[in-house]
Design a binder for these strands. Structure first.
Length: 479
RNA sequence: GGGUCUGUAGUCUAGCUUGGUUAGGAUUCGAGGUUUGGGACCUUGUGGCCCCGGUUCAAAUCCGGGCAGACUCACCA
């Protein structure tokens, strides 16, 4: 990567995840986090393009599902914040208060989450069944004054490019159906865009908002063996409706509380993909979200510039026809340097065009994922999309396999500890009691039961109390 | 909030233990030239001791206090 120190190149996501992660984000031109506010950073153009390809896709998917884009102020009046006392208790220390005016009066708080900005408005808008359903989302920043450790894209004080869907429904059943759509959309983003498995669990009930029905959460297994919450779809039931007074009159003129959902995620999607696929040379981007899918590197010799760039023009025409996102690196530096740059940025394909190749009528094509080198003839350029699809499938298959191999079904404390300490996720039968849960996660430092299986089939004995159970609990260290 | 550690050019780093030349090197960047199939080379230029105070003839170095960052525990997306 950028640094030239001989020891440096040995850093891999697995050997030293933290250092690798920070370095690769800078070296690849994704972020600059030297901004002088902790937990905040600048999205550089290349990084933002990457983020934007996901944003555009979720915009498209939400639109298709009738979920409308909207925007609420970042600044939330304190009166709205205080509607939900338990929420406010939790966030009043983490919240950024904004002062303005000669007397520095507090004007409100920067939103740590969307509810207090959005739900008071929903309460005003909804009068009858005809006002329902409401299906809206916004892509915004959230602000939380994290007390200590921050990590770019994973734990920030400004959580950027975060989408938050808030829907309101007349009936529980309708809400439940809608939740399935949200799950489908997140799954699509994982599998079809990021080439990552959509690993979904049921959120433990005590982590859910009191009174809510439940929640699905998505998790990513990071190279250091910790799991990271990466997307959640919450069935809020009527819990918030009761707090924020969101209700409609039915046919008989009786007030009914609405049923609500809230689903969100953001830049953590990228953090997971970057961490999953990157290597000691830098990023390896899933081709569907890569801002540049193919980098053309001219091998220029003195006196042959015209031949080479004429040839590249022909290639460009063909690539444009197929909607390949490509660039030509025409900088006047040595080709080797361009190879390294293309690699650190994680560009899926690299094609070299030099006098030798023009003569042979085939170009060296290097696939970043797996470092596979092949030659492509001019008339085969139309196959590039197939190659891209093939890379995507291979990446998805590999990430899926890594996740499934990392989930270890264990039936003893000893195995549980050894699974987690070797950077895996332990899966155990669990009776559902909080007491047993507490005992299980006390087996090691930092252990967390982050959710239960959504498709448990068998029956076993609770690892702590031996009561028969069909519930499967995932335990790992967590971000 | 607790603990451990670290601040030297845009970036990486030597020097600090034991205070003492003009703070050394690498890379980046600017100019000129020669080049281009895995980080090219030559000439040349720009740029630095986190801040404040103390000790001292003398501080990058020692001491105190700030500020900033990294790691880690707790908490949290």
């Amino acid at each position: 990567m950028v640094k030239q120190d001989s020891t440096y190149e040995k850093i891999t996501p697995k050997s030293n995840y933290s250092d690798w992660y920070n370095d690769v984000l800078s070296a690849a031109g994704i972020l600059d986090f030297s901004y002088d506010l902790k937990g905040m950073f600048v999205w550089l153009p290349y990084g933002f393009k990457l983020m934007d390809s996901l944003i555009k896709k979720w915009d498209e998917l939400f639109e298709k599902n009738g979920i409308q884009k909207s925007y609420f102020p970042l600044l939330v009046p304190l009166s709205y914040c205080q509607i939900n006392e338990s929420w406010w208790d939790k966030f009043k220390e983490e919240g950024y208060k904004v002062i303005a005016g000669a007397d520095d009066k507090v004007q409100g708080a920067l939103r740590p989450t969307g509810e207090p900005a959005i739900y008071p408005m929903y309460s005003k808008w909804i009068r009858s069944k005809n006002d329902l359903p409401i299906k809206m989302y916004e892509t915004v920043s959230s602000f939380r004054y994290e007390t200590k450790q921050t990590r770019p894209l994973i734990r920030d004080r400004e959580i950027t490019n975060w989408f938050e869907i808030h829907t309101v429904h007349a009936t529980k059943g309708e809400a439940e159906n809608e939740l399935k759509n949200h799950v489908k959309i997140i799954t699509y983003l994982y599998e079809e865009m990021l080439a990552l498995p959509a690993f979904m669990v049921n959120k433990p009930s005590w982590d859910c908002f009191p009174g809510s029905v439940g929640a699905y959460e998505f998790y990513s297994l990071m190279p250091d063996g910790k799991v990271m919450e990466n997307g959640s779809a919450n069935n809020l039931g009527q819990a918030y409706a009761k707090k924020f007074d969101i209700k409609y009159k039915d046919d008989k003129g009786v007030d009914n509380y609405c049923w609500q959902l809230c689903t969100g995620n953001g830049a953590r999607f990228l953090a997971a993909a970057i961490s999953e696929f990157g290597d000691e040379k830098g990023l390896i981007l899933p081709p569907k979200i890569a801002p540049i899918q193919l980098m053309i590197i001219p091998i220029v010799f003195k006196g042959k510039e015209k031949i080479i760039f004429d040839e590249i023009d022909k290639i460009k025409e063909e690539l444009l026809k197929q909607n390949i996102r490509f660039e030509v690196d025409a900088r006047e530096i040595s080709p080797g340097r361009k190879y390294y740059d293309s690699e650190v940025k994680g560009i899926p394909l690299r094609m070299e065009v030099g006098p030798r190749d023009i003569e042979n009528k085939e170009y060296p094509l290097t696939i970043r994922y797996g470092n596979e080198k092949l030659k492509i003839k001019s008339h085969e350029l139309k196959n590039i999309n197939n190659i891209i699809n093939d890379i995507h499938s291979k990446m998805l298959k590999a990430s899926n396999m890594r996740l499934h191999e990392s989930i270890k079904f264990v039936n003893s404390s000893k195995d549980l500890i050894s699974a987690i300490e070797s950077k895996n996720i332990a899966k155990v039968y669990w009776c559902g009691n909080q007491e047993c849960y507490d005992k299980l996660i006390a087996l090691g430092e930092g252990y967390e039961g982050f959710g239960t299986s959504t498709d448990s089939k068998g029956t076993g004995k609770c690892l702590n109390c031996s009561k028969p159970s069909h519930e499967e609990l995932f335990i790992a260290k967590s971000y």
